[in-house]
Design a protein around this nucleic acid. Structure first.
Lengths: 143, 143
DNA sequence: TTATCTGCAAAGAATTTGCGGGAGG
DNA sequence: CCTCCCGCAAATTCTTTGCAGATAA
């Protein structure tokens, strides 16, 4: 054991779901929970490894997959090849992404009407909406 | 020259945009235009290669990239690792995807209100909406 | 000819896996 | 001990590229 880290939301969720939290998993969870930039696996690795250099890239991948399978983490596609990740928010915090095509900046947003409409559209097709992903790509309007 | 193929919509678009159409590009365009299953690069290769075995996987990748850059093709993320593709529809035909979580079936749909709302949400954030991707994941409601 | 395009095989990048050693019951 | 976990390095998988010949303008 190295030191006790504050418990991240991901870690809480894991506890709820019965996913065992080891030291490295805890560090990886913390890194992802605290990230605001939707890091890819390698970024997560670098940050986690900086906190504790006993953490390997393989473990980062294994852990991310474990988290994904247990729905405490979500993979997002922001164009480009590598997968990027973010903490899976609670239902009422779930947000979408708007990517600034000029700067690459990612704006998170939530729109109640949009969420309702998604649900309604799925219903109309005979489906119960379980999950969804949406990315808007836009350019800032010069005032 | 082997034989004259019917001209696909992708090919038309290329002509419009001044993208040179070679024999292999024509075959690849045709394969993608006619596909209804959002094939990945390898599937496109196998189908194109079946039509004309002078077509290599490298060319498929190069051509897909060319098409993507010229906006006659769009890459979609349906979960899983590989990129998948579909013909880019005209503006008024642009659709989203609903993925059946039980069967993996992909349902294409278009909802006018949803499109308008997306645009409005982007505006509200100060952006002009250029493009967007949306996938809904749901389960069929047992009647 | 001159520029562009292709196939092939090799290189790269991202992700996964086999294996033997470790950590914690 | 027993089981699950981890680091390491090798293996896979998907995609890109260098090169020399083929094609087309």
């Amino acid at each position: 054991m190295v030191k006790k880290l504050t418990i991240s939301r991901i870690e809480e969720l894991c506890a709820q779901k019965g996913v065992k939290i080891t030291h490295q998993r805890s560090v990886i969870a913390k890194v992802i929970s605290e990230a605001t930039d939707h890091p890819d696996a390698n970024k997560v690795f670098m940050r986690a490894n900086k906190i504790d250099n006993r953490i390997s890239l393989a473990t980062v991948y294994r852990t991310i997959k474990l988290f994904e399978e247990n729905n405490v983490l979500s993979r997002i596609d922001l164009g480009g090849n590598r997968a990027r990740y973010e903490e899976l928010s609670e239902e009422h915090n779930k947000h979408d992404h708007l990517i600034d095509l000029d700067t690459g900046e990612i704006i998170e947003f939530f729109d109640e009407d949009l969420e309702k409409l998604k649900k309604r559209v799925a219903e109309k097709l005979g489906y119960k909406l379980i999950d969804h992903k949406m990315e808007l790509f836009g350019k800032k309007k010069s005032k």
